[in-house]
Design a protein around this nucleic acid. Structure first.
Length: 445
RNA sequence: GCUCCCAUCGUCUAGGGGUUAGGACACGAGCUUUUCAAGCUUGUAACACGGGUUCGAUUCCCGUUGGGAGUACCA
């Protein structure tokens, strides 16, 4: 006979609600969960939390998955993937939640609440900060009878009247919250859908999630979740609450102050390697002075212990620098297929791959994002005459190389070469651009 | 309001009872480069405040201030 030591395998998940796009903060949360799972040879799960029907957005799940895939954050279990814990979409798990609510009801850990939203509003208007627990005293058999008559109701969980709940967070350390500051949380809504609080706990347990890695906004509701685990008699997973991502003014990262969708950065021409590297360093660092990391290196070196507690401002300057660095790490040939779509979207698709690759080689150390390979140097792709027209239309009359340079800047063009050679190019007199030692023959000539 | 969380250069951060408080981005200067970049060198710049504890606190404790989150039949 031999003893088998059961080692709990690491299982993490990213559980977004499909509201339209993948937020960069969501990407970081997903990334950390993914890194942790991969590092421990565990499993990373994607679960869609679509329990709010009113916020359902068509095609959002697909966009979410696409963004994750683009970034290289691969999940082993989730929608469209086989796993033994599915379905991975909460709206398809309704019977499971109802079943668990029944158990809670039977055990006296939850109760039917028939209060109308009007009454709840009145309560709040009267200064109440929490539900007054009116329906808690209704006997179960009486409640069941009222349910049978079709009376609208929700199911609430019973929170102890006093006492304190202590728990340990992997990032924040010990946290404690008094029960008397916690409301009797609604678990099942009147439309039969569970609230987040019920669904996460049930799913995380059923999907055997070992580490709940999520944003800091969930820290205050963690006691409710832990209480629920206790009510069900389940073992409690480890929790790790990540600091928030902030706007430059330190408020929570929002749409108003810049792009927050991963796809925005993708279309703007950022490399996934740079975005991943950047987002990983918002709240984490390896403890030494290295800053350029690949996904594989992050998997190797990431640790929850080194995740900071304070919120981090999402500063585009560093992202730009990181993008340049990762761009330089790639060969011209690797960059080619990434740049091509941008060129095609401009309709300037008559250049050959060889030509484009040469342009990439020339521009690589002068540009910030992929779109710059096109937008910053249109004279490489346009008919010289066309470009001349543009200049004329804008009333360009360069008086000197310096003046021309200034004009170029006004047009947001990077002064790639010296003013004289750009001028020459504009006048389309040269048969090609002189660049360093080599010469690039303009495709339109 | 109440509850919880947080606090090192402008930003991302390292560090930690005694340090010239380190790095990166951004910004300035210089070198290099035919030019623009890149690269290299270099400069400016931080421990929020007040009390403790201590021989000594930026570091530990308490408070204040500031910031953030939560407080929904949203997640």
């Amino acid at each position: 006979m031999r003893k088998v030591i059961a080692v709990m395998s690491v299982r993490t998940r990213f559980a977004p609600s499909p509201t339209g796009y993948l937020h960069v903060g969501g990407l970081r949360t997903a990334l950390y969960a993914y890194l942790y799972a991969r590092q421990h040879h565990g499993t990373f799960i994607l679960r869609i939390e679509d329990t709010d029907q009113s916020r359902k957005v068509e095609g959002a799940t697909e966009k979410l998955i696409e963004a994750l895939q683009w970034a290289g954050v691969q999940f082993e279990e989730g929608p469209g993937k086989d796993g033994h814990h599915g379905p991975y979409v909460q709206s398809q798990r309704l019977p499971i939640y109802r079943e668990h609510v029944q158990q809670l009801l039977k055990d006296g850990k939850a109760y039917h609440c028939f209060c109308t939203s009007e009454r709840l509003e009145q309560l709040r208007a009267g200064g109440a900060t929490m539900y007054d627990r009116l329906c808690r005293s209704i006997p179960l058999d009486e409640a069941l009878k009222r349910v049978d008559t079709g009376e609208h109701h929700v199911i609430r969980m019973k929170i102890p009247d006093d006492g304190v709940l202590n728990f340990h967070d992997e990032i924040r350390g010990d946290v404690s919250i008094a029960f008397n500051t916690i409301d009797d949380q609604v678990l099942l809504k009147s439309d039969g859908f569970p609230t987040y609080h019920l669904a996460v706990v049930v799913d995380d347990h059923l999907m055997e999630v070992s580490h709940v890695i999520r944003g800091e906004e969930w820290l205050p509701s963690t006691p409710k979740h832990i209480l629920l685990y206790q009510y069900f008699g389940w073992s409690i997973p480890k929790f790790a609450h990540l600091p928030l991502l902030l706007n430059p003014d330190k408020s929570k990262l929002s749409k108003r102050q810049g792009d927050v969708a991963v796809e925005d950065y993708r279309t703007k021409g950022y490399l996934k390697e740079a975005l991943i590297n950047f987002v990983a360093f918002l709240g984490w660092n390896p403890g030494d002075e290295r800053e350029l990391f690949s996904l594989e290196e992050l998997i190797k070196e990431f640790s929850l212990e080194r995740v900071g507690k304070a919120g981090a401002v999402f500063n585009i300057d560093k992202l730009n620098w990181l993008n340049q660095q990762h761009m330089k790490l790639k060969s011209d040939a690797d960059l080619l297929p990434l740049v091509k779509p941008y060129l095609e979207s401009k309709g300037w698709d008559s250049v050959t791959d060889e030509y484009l690759q040469q342009v990439i080689g020339l521009m690589k150390e002068r540009v910030v994002v992929l779109t710059d390979f096109v937008d910053a140097c249109p004279y490489f792709y346009q008919e010289p005459e066309t470009y001349d027209e543009t200049a004329k239309a804008k009333n360009w009359k360069p008086e000197s190389p310096a003046h021309l340079s200034a004009l170029l800047e006004k047009l947001n063009l990077l002064p790639v070469f010296d003013a004289a050679s750009v001028e020459a190019a504009l006048r389309s007199t040269a048969e090609g651009f002189n660049v360093g030692a080599g010469k690039l023959i303009h495709p339109m000539r």
